[in-house]
Amino acid sequence: MVDFIQNTLDGIFIGSSYALLAIGFTLIFGVMRRLNLSYGPSIMLGVFAGTLLYIQLNAGLLVVGLATVVGAVLAGLYVERICFWAVRRGAALASMVSSFAIWMQLEEAVTIVFPDRTYPFPPLADFTLKLGPFWVRGEHLIMFICASLLTILLHLLLYRTRFGLAIRAVSENPTAAKFMGINTGLVVMFAFALASVIGGVAGYLIASTDQQVTPLFGLWATFKGLIAMTLGGMGSIPGAIAGGLLLGVIEAQSVWYLGTEYRDLVAYAVLFAFLVFRPGGLFAQKSAMQSRLAARRV
């Protein structure tokens, strides 16, 4: 039982970073109704921007973090302009494949500058807490706190500001949003930038927990985010959070009880089962609308 709870705790901590990735995914999906496969790779670019400053200038945590976020935002906007803004409306498949092409491009661009397999990333904290019979790693705790704070900020932004109202209006009905006088193109761009900020923070937290980065981070982040978003229900932010935490817990439990080689297998099996039996995700009822839209032809 102690083991089970310990795994659940670990899973929730790690899952908080998955939740951030899923939130970013869901924001983009919400305003675009299209899949941005390049989401992870653009975060990867940000993480490498951070690493570059760390290796070359021995920059501090804050500078590295800032570089990561700025890099992710710039790459995210590049993706938005080329794969989404420029591609004709109604051509969702073209956008998706285009985002894949840009993924390949970003990944190779990074490996040209960083030819080795892994590079160091500055750690956030190096302490471990003991709470009763349970252990909590410092960087996990910081990760969880940062993710929670960021989620609260995002919630305030979406539900308390005019800009948040515009994002939600575009997500629910872009045509109606235009009738309100909302500049939908601009809102989409800002939503991408916002998703990239969230992704950049997630990338920074994950990289500093791992204390290293690899060009494979892009692939990893895209699929973690995609799975977590689907588990929770596409287009729903509470769903993204729940999906991220669930994925973290599933992974932690399967590593403990079945072994590392079963971690992804179990995660994919749960994902598949969700798609078959509960395609709307954890919050199937609430996001019925989003699910219908997701099921539309891409």
Partner: peptide
């Protein structure tokens, strides 16, 4: 006032 109303359903 658009055809079919187009209110924002989840607002």
């Amino acid at each position: 006032v658009p055809e079919n109303r187009l209110v924002f359903p989840e607002m």
